[in-house]
Design a protein around this nucleic acid. Structure first.
Length: 297
DNA sequence: AAGAGACGCAACCGCTCACGC
DNA sequence: CGCGTGAGCGGTTGCGTCTCT
């Protein structure tokens, strides 16, 4: 359908500036014009682009179209597990700094990441009946969702068929802060991101610009999180051989966090099975988390 | 089969920052 | 130093598609 028919173009301009300014979806012809212009003259000077290329668009509109859609390096399609993990990690550190987060996901745009966060992550918060910025939800992300993603990334990388391996002895119980590259680069098996080697260790370091410095970082958690022992024997959680009992079971309870230790046992398989991100948040888990949240209030 | 509602995404809007004069 | 302009960023909106009833 033509944009004119949909009323997306100002047909009654109020001033000279508004004359003929197009809005709404871009046509293939406009895309071609913008691509051709940028290929010749390069990026930047977006108002000039709008004027000189013959496009009846604002400079802002041209810039947005180029950055989010026309750039050759833009990757489109499903966001991989590794990318999801990075987004969660980076958001926990920087908050809604979408462009900053996007810098660490080659080919992804801030707009795409923002949309992912709104549609996927905020949806989960809504299902849990808690605010996406609440401590409860951040805890859920850090102590359940992120470790679960790491587990699944590992499983995918270790099994050519994509099935989780049952013989792995690798542990996340690193000293310091290297949950990182060697684990994250399994990415290759799913054809996705190369993670900056310096990135994740940085996350567990000093967080002067973190929005929330009172809660231990994700990497702190993964330092003492052992999915193998946890999934093989949930009782290990009680004696601290898997999760750090002091950090998780006790501390979370005391500071008002969620008791995921109990969650893990009672939901029976929190860390097992499931082949999508959403499976981490299946109905049973969400129900139980809600109980936990309400108990805390 | 059709309508309603939910969802995903592209695009716009308004604000802030950086830079040149 | 103040002002104007351009660029960038985060929030919001609206449309097309999908799913459910």
């Amino acid at each position: 359908m033509d944009v004119y028919e949909r009323g997306l173009i100002s047909e009654t301009p109020q001033s000279e500036e508004e004359m003929d300014v197009r809005k709404g979806p871009w046509t293939e012809e406009e895309d071609s014009m913008l691509k051709a212009y940028v290929n010749i003259h390069g990026e930047g000077r977006w108002n000039s682009v709008a004027r000189l290329s013959g496009l009846k668009r604002t400079g802002k509109s041209c810039r947005l179209r180029w950055l989010n859609y026309l750039r050759p390096e833009v990757r489109r399609g499903n966001i991989s597990l590794e990318e999801q993990l990075l987004i969660l990690e980076l958001h926990s550190r920087w908050g809604n700094r979408w462009s900053k987060i996007a810098q660490h996901l080659p080919g992804r745009t801030d707009n795409e990441i923002k949309n992912y966060w709104r549609t996927r992550v905020q949806k989960q918060a809504k299902q849990l009946k808690c605010d996406v910025n609440s401590k409860q939800f951040r805890d859920a992300m850090r102590y359940v969702w992120i470790p679960r993603l790491i587990e699944r990334i590992r499983a995918t990388s270790e099994s050519p068929s994509g099935q989780p391996s049952s013989s792995s002895t690798t542990t996340y119980m690193n000293s310091g802060s290297n949950i990182t590259t060697s684990q994250i680069t399994y990415a290759n098996t799913t054809g996705s991101v190369q993670v900056d080697p310096s990135l994740l260790p940085e996350l567990s370091g000093t967080s002067s610009d973190s929005l929330d410095t009172q809660v231990s970082s994700v990497s702190d958690l993964t330092d003492c999180y052992n999915p193998q022992s946890a999934s093989n024997n949930p009782n290990n959680l009680q004696n601290g051989s898997g999760l750090c009992a002091e950090n998780l079971a006790g501390a979370w309870r005391r500071d008002g966090g969620i008791d995921f230790q109990a969650t893990e046992e009672q939901s029976n398989g929190w860390l097992g099975g499931g082949d999508s991100l959403e499976s981490v948040w299946n109905e049973e888990n969400i129900w139980f988390l809600q109980q936990q949240l309400h108990d805390e209030v």
